[in-house]
């Protein structure tokens, strides 16, 4: 599939989602469908799907201990081991995973290879790492902030996060306090999208499955920001709906505004799409055998559950074939 087709197909898919919600609520008045049924269904698909995926991976055996070693291994006592990048204990592997999952350590290694004349150079290239961190942490903080809609009274943690997130006290054109994460998320997603479009090799490897989630998340971010900063929606009503959903007594309050329904439908789509997509890397990364295993197979034997005996060319067969040669060469044999 060509680059243009992949990109536009993904864009239009998201555009269609927006229109579906718009008409579904404005024209067909399917508020209950978009406000209650679809969110419930999407969340159920997300939970069941993610658990299914996790169990499917976890059920697969790990036949070999194959960590990618990224530093000096445990060796002679006076040689300093790199305990994080080449762990020899389960604890070390745990620490390595913490670095990987929370700080994206492998991505931090990224370099950019350049060829000038016949000379290769490897420049530091941290933008992907920065954007990835900004994207994932903004997303997390925004999720935490959304908890205020589901919990009454609003927990201290949520309030603290909100305070920190609006640390700079910026009011955009008289709008409510600007959240840093809103800007960071939109900027990071835009960067991640643009690099796929601009860098030729990335454009070449990108699939609709790469553009679609980016457009989807971008749209979620934009609709969210629009609601907060520009088009006032009925927040009290939204909280009523959210509390209803969480207490399994859903009801649709009046006057929430279609923008909210579009936002919610996009979020629902993201949740439902999640388990079937590359986004499952969120779970998969924890199971990656090149990262989560200690590099100690010479000291502690790793067991392969499906190990089976194999046919080996035995010494006896070898000697039977070459006995005379061996004897002539003065090499000891078992049978004279």
């Amino acid at each position: 599939m060509s680059f243009g087709l992949s990109l536009w197909l993904s864009f239009f898919a998201v555009a269609v989602l927006v229109l579906v919600a718009l008409f579904g609520v404005e024209a067909a008045h399917l508020n209950y469908l978009f406000g209650v049924i679809i969110p419930y269904a999407a969340f159920a698909i997300f939970i069941v799907g993610i658990i299914y995926r996790f169990l499917k991976w976890a059920a697969r055996p790990v036949p070999f201990r194959i960590p990618t070693t990224a530093g000096q291994g445990k060796s002679l006592p006076w040689i300093k081991q790199n305990k994080i990048d080449n762990p020899s204990t389960a604890l070390g592997a745990f620490v390595r995973m913490i670095f990987e999952v929370l700080l994206f350590r492998s991505l931090f290694r990224n370099t950019r290879t350049e060829l000038r004349g016949p000379i290769l150079s490897y420049a530091s290239a941290k933008w992907l790492w920065i954007a990835a961190l900004a994207f994932h942490y903004s997303f997390l903080i925004i999720l935490i902030r959304h908890l205020r809609l589901f919990i009454e009274p609003v927990p201290f943690l949520v309030k603290t996060v909100e305070k920190l997130d609006s640390f700079f006290q910026i009011h955009l054109l008289g709008a409510p306090l600007l959240y840093i994460t809103n800007v960071a998320l939109l900027a990071a997603v835009t960067y991640l999208l643009l690099r796929r479009v601009v860098i030729p090799t990335l454009r070449y490897i990108s699939l609709p499955a790469d553009y679609f989630p980016l457009f989807l998340i971008l749209s979620i971010g934009i609709t969210g920001a629009l609601m907060r900063y520009f088009y006032k929606v009925n927040v009290v009503g939204i909280k009523e709906l959210a509390m209803g959903l969480i207490n399994f007594s859903p009801k649709i309050p009046e006057g929430i505004g279609v923008l909210f329904y579009i936002h919610l439908f996009l979020v629902s789509t993201l949740f439902a799409y999640f388990p079937f997509s590359k986004l499952t890397h969120m779970v998969g990364v924890f199971l990656s055998p090149t990262r989560n295993l200690a590099n100690n197979n010479r000291a502690v034997r790793h067991v392969n559950p499906w190990n089976y005996p194999v046919k080996v060319h035995t010494y006896e067969e070898y000697e039977d074939e070459f006995r005379e040669f061996m004897k002539d060469a003065g090499i000891p044999v078992e049978k004279e």
């Binding site: 697969r60 790990v62 055998p289």
Partner: peptide, 21 residues
């Protein structure tokens, strides 16, 4: 038989960090 294999078939996001390595 290989968790690694199943996982590596499923979770690549095509970020391209490996491309020029």
């Amino acid at each position: 038989k290989y968790r690694s294999f199943q996982l590596f078939m499923d979770i690549c996001v095509r970020c391209g960090a490996c491309a020029d390595k």
